[in-house]
């Protein structure tokens, strides 16, 4: 009789221990942080500022690649399979990822349920690509307002995946947006009251349309015939003629990209050359967008001040 009672007590305790373990285990499973993949550097900064320490960020590709010419490697695909979500530019700057993901989902349909694709540009009022029909300008990340729009979209989509943290993600997104906007306002104040209507701008790469648009400035000439494609000798000559004819004051080019033809244009036209960050080079970092955006704002402010000054050299010097 005593043995039966001991056995009953023991089974009861064992059962409660088992139940507690199961509860703890399920709790741990629920609390497992999301693994959020990113394709380009700015998206690392956006996601890092949105998720804080409540999700893990997995760059699809190791730092140091050129997004204009990259092709996914087996190690990248292995990383892709560990992600819960992948944040994409989705409008042409990470085709190396979108094409691979499409093929992978086609061959493994179950991946579609496991991996959520977040198109960060879904809600951005996009600009048309220069020199190309039926395509969007994919450089929304080289802009403050378009970055903020993407940050909000990412926060909403991640909140849908992790409803417990949805409000936290949204709050972080708004704090980050205000930080970026504060940066912009400082430079907006500097430029307010200036008549920028006479400033004519050329750009080697069509990366700054969204950024300049925030200051009410359009780009008159984009030199590359297509995204990431260098102009031929004939195209370069035509561009030089166009720059001279349009009396372009400023030429913006990439900080980290070697464009051999830029010095030719500079010599032929006497145009002032300034460098903007494309934000997709170097290492990944939470503050990369903020820091490089600040540098771009400084460059823009300096370039516009020079262009507006009386000693500005018009195009066609040579």
């Amino acid at each position: 009789m005593k043995a039966i009672r001991i056995l009953t007590v023991f089974s009861g305790r064992a059962l409660s221990v088992l139940l507690s373990t199961l509860v703890l285990l399920s709790g741990n499973l629920q609390a497992a942080p999301l693994k959020v993949g990113i394709t380009l550097h700015p998206y690392y900064s956006y996601v890092a500022n949105v998720v804080g320490d409540r999700a893990e960020i997995v760059p699809l590709v190791d730092a140091g690649f050129n997004p204009h010419s990259y092709e996914l490697q087996p190690a990248d695909l292995k990383r892709l399979l560990t992600m819960d979500a992948l944040v994409l530019n989705g409008i042409g700057h990470d085709e190396f990822a979108t094409h691979a993901v499409e093929k992978l989902i086609h061959s493994q349909p179950e991946l579609k349920d496991r991996l959520t694709l977040i198109n960060a540009n879904k809600d951005v009022p996009l600009l048309a690509a220069a020199n190309t029909q039926n395509a969007w300008n994919p450089h929304t990340f080289v802009s403050i307002d378009a970055s903020i729009r993407q940050v909000y979209t990412i926060a909403r989509e991640l909140g849908n995946l992790d409803p417990d943290n949805a409000r936290y993600f949204q709050k972080n997104a708004i704090i980050y947006a205000r930080k970026l906007r504060g940066l912009k306002n400082n430079y907006m104040r500097e430029l307010s009251g200036q008549d920028l209507s006479q400033v004519r701008i050329a750009s080697t790469h069509n990366a700054y349309g969204y950024f300049l648009q925030e200051f009410g400035i359009g780009i008159d000439t984009v030199i590359e015939p297509a995204h990431g494609v260098e102009p031929s000798a004939t195209q370069l000559q035509k561009t030089i003629d166009r720059i001279r004819k349009a009396n372009v004051n400023l030429l913006f080019t990439e900080l980290d990209m070697d464009n051999r033809y830029v010095s030719t244009i500079e010599r032929a036209t006497g145009i002032r050359l300034h460098h903007f960050s494309h934000m997709t080079y170097g290492s990944y970092g939470k503050d990369k967008v903020y820091l490089e955006m600040e540098q771009n704002l400084k460059t823009l402010s300096q370039a516009l001040t020079e262009a507006l000054s009386s000693d500005s050299v018009p195009a066609g010097a040579e």
Partner: peptide, 20 residues
């Protein structure tokens, strides 16, 4: 035009903040 496009992006962001 360029200014109106910038305004559109700005308002698109404002929707999220007003909702919040």
């Amino acid at each position: 035009n360029t200014q109106d496009k910038a305004m559109l992006t700005s308002l698109s962001n404002a929707i999220t903040e007003i909702r919040f």
